[in-house]
Computed example of a mutant assay.
Amino acid sequence: MSGLREKQKADRDQRILKAATRLFRDAGYDSTKIETIAAKAKVSIGTVYNYYENKGDLLVAIVSMEVNEVLRAGAGLIARPPKKVEDAVQALISIYLDHSLVYLSKEMWRQAMAIAIRQPDTPYGRHYSALDERLAAQVCELIECLQVQGLVKPEVDARAAGETIFNNTNMMFTVFVKTEAMTLVDLKAAIARQLKPLMQALRP
């Protein structure tokens, strides 16, 4: 029976997340009410609050769902990376960026970033920061893997290089979500141009 209850609980959670994702995208984060999310998910308002304290918690759960999926895809790439450091780094960054608008719109990303900045010491803010840290750690892991394969100079500080790559990507992603006219193609081109000198410095 406990297994069935857990399955039902997970199913309700997924329905709530899917409903919130659709409503945040279609109606906007500010305009969406918990009552509307509950109705769309076919659960009671109390059930929503049993899972999430507020809309911000729901939003970070959607961000977490997105990040967990790209981390899994990134792990697969690191297991079999391209044989050039530029290609490997661009492939990992592309995984992150290509998935970034699957669940969240630019407006949702702006809301998520704003809440994390305004409330850095709340569970929401700490969770959001932890997701960034996991992504940065994966970029560092890629550089370390390439270094072991002889594709990155042995004297390079792999962690510093990985953090620099992630921080630049993260900064440019912030520009992307603030600029409605900017496309993913524009974003990738800007990041590739900015990282080119670093890629050249990493090669043996």
Score class of each variant (00 low, 15 high):
Lys196Gly: 02
Lys196Gln: 11
Thr164Lys: 08
Ala181Arg: 11
Gln194Tyr: 00
Gln194Ser: 09
Ala161Ser: 05
Asn167Asp: 08
Ala201Pro: 08
Ala161Met: 06
Glu163Ser: 02
Met182Leu: 12
Met182Tyr: 00
Arg159Trp: 10
Leu202Gln: 07
Ala181Gln: 11
Glu163Lys: 09
Pro197Ile: 01
Ala192Trp: 09
Pro197Met: 00
Ala158Gly: 05
Glu180Leu: 00
Met171Trp: 05
Asp186His: 02
Leu187Trp: 03
Thr183Asn: 02
Lys196Phe: 07
Glu180Trp: 01
Asn170Lys: 13
Asn168Ala: 11
Met199Ile: 14
Asp186Trp: 10
Ala189Tyr: 13
Ala189Val: 10
Arg203Ser: 15
Ala201His: 08
Ala189Lys: 14
Thr179Leu: 01
Phe176Pro: 03
Val177Thr: 04
Val175Glu: 04
Phe166Arg: 10
Ile165Gln: 02
Met172Cys: 08
Lys178Leu: 15
Leu202Val: 03
Leu195Arg: 03
Ala192Glu: 10
Asn167Ile: 07
Ala190Trp: 01
Met171Phe: 05
Gly162Met: 01
Arg193Ala: 15
Val175Ile: 13
Ala201Thr: 12
Arg193Met: 13
Leu184Met: 04
Ala192Tyr: 12
Leu184Val: 05
Asn167Gln: 09
Ile165His: 03
Leu184Lys: 08
Val185Ala: 08
Phe173Asp: 08
Phe173Glu: 05
Ala158Pro: 12
Arg203Ile: 14
Ile191Cys: 11
Arg203Thr: 15
Leu195Thr: 08
Met171His: 11
Asp186Pro: 10
Leu184Trp: 12
Gln200Ile: 04
Ala161Lys: 03
Ile191Asn: 06
Leu195Val: 06
Leu184Ala: 04
Ile191Gly: 07
Ala189Gln: 13
Asn170Gln: 06
Ala160Arg: 07
Met171Gly: 04
Lys196Pro: 05
Met199Gly: 00
Gly162Trp: 01
Glu163Gly: 02
Leu198Ala: 06
Ala201Asn: 04
Met171Pro: 02
Thr169Ile: 12
Ile191Trp: 07
Met171Gln: 14
Arg193Lys: 05
Asn168Met: 15
Thr179Ala: 12
Ala160Pro: 05
Thr164Tyr: 09
Thr169Leu: 11
Ala189Asn: 14
Gln200His: 15
Phe176Gly: 06
Phe173Ile: 00
Arg159Ser: 14
Ala160Met: 04
Met172Gln: 03
Ala189Trp: 10
Met171Cys: 09
Asp186Gly: 10
Phe166Gly: 07
Asp186Cys: 00
Ala181Asn: 12
Arg203Val: 14
Val177Ile: 12
Ile165Phe: 06
Phe166Met: 06
Ala161Tyr: 07
